[in-house]
Amino acid sequence: MNAAPQTEQELLERALELAGFSLGEIAAKLGQQCPMDLKREKGWVGMLLETWLGATAGSKPVQDFEDLAIELKSIPISYSGKPLETTFVCVAPLTGIHGLSWEKSHIRQKLSKVLWIPVEGERDIPVCDRQIGMPLLWQPSTEEEAQLKADWEELMDMIALGEIAKINARHGEYLQLRPKGMNGKVVTEAYGASGQPIKAQPKGFYLRKSFTERILRRHFLHLAENNQDR
């Protein structure tokens, strides 16, 4: 594992070094074995990038680069450069949420500054041959944060009111609440409509593909315009 980057610029330079390499090439540089597929190794790409970039969080509930207050997110993209799946942000709290605000929430901390690294994700490309794209460092705009906050408050209100069973994929414009667990047998504590303790599937906050596509499109359009100006 590389040492933790000391500055935001150092982190970005390391991420830029990855661009154009395949996952297999980076794995070989780190002495790792590249899996045949990601069905049982779903988090492998993220962990590979964390190792190369020197992420420090491990399993702690903090940003991946804690000292820099930056979260790392790899994002699988299609041939046309669009995200192939929603992006997991963090587990949603289902109990002990009285008085919790967006400003002090774990998810806001996670999304305050994100290093996005696009990676080819089409299934017909062998995992080892999938190329890593140009990174981008993103912070939510005022409008983006306002909508994320509105989505979060809507979903958290439903959890607080014991309406967790009513939450579905239509709720939230940028942010979704979806089951987070390997299977439906995993349960955790939650509240029912009458405030009684119940068992429910763990839930996670996910960013919609339409939202992350907008982030990528805006960034790479900006890069293209800068290149034209030179």
Rank of each mutant, 00 (worst) to 15 (best):
E10I: 10
K180S: 09
I75G: 08
G24E: 07
K82E: 14
G184M: 11
N227G: 05
I117P: 00
G99I: 06
Q6A: 14
K104V: 06
A160K: 10
W116I: 11
E144L: 01
S112C: 10
A165D: 15
K82C: 07
P61M: 03
E153D: 11
G181W: 02
R217E: 14
L48A: 07
P83S: 10
F220V: 03
C90M: 09
S105L: 08
T51F: 09
V62G: 00
K39L: 13
L161C: 12
M36W: 03
V89N: 00
A165K: 14
A160T: 07
K39H: 13
F211M: 01
E71T: 06
G31I: 05
P202M: 04
G58C: 02
S210D: 13
I215W: 08
P5C: 01
E85L: 03
W138C: 01
M47K: 15
I198V: 13
L111P: 05
P76W: 04
A28I: 00
K203Y: 14
W52H: 10
E225N: 12
H106R: 13
G192S: 04
V119G: 00
I164D: 05
Q147N: 00
E143P: 01
L11D: 01
L49Q: 11
E163S: 09
D151Q: 01
A92G: 02
A169D: 14
V119T: 03
T86A: 14
C128G: 10
N183Q: 01
G192W: 01
G31K: 05
S78N: 07
E13G: 02
K113A: 12
V91K: 15
V45L: 03
G58M: 06
Q131N: 12
G121R: 08
E225K: 14
I107Q: 11
M182T: 15
G58Y: 01
E189A: 14
M36G: 01
M156P: 02
R170Y: 11
S22E: 03
S112H: 10
L221T: 15
V45F: 09
A224H: 09
T51D: 15
R170W: 06
I215M: 04
E173D: 12
S210N: 12
A190V: 03
G195P: 02
P93L: 09
G43M: 06
R40D: 09
F205W: 09
L161A: 15
R130M: 04
K73I: 03
L115T: 03
R40L: 09
E17P: 00
I164K: 07
L84A: 07
S74N: 09
T51K: 15
L137C: 04
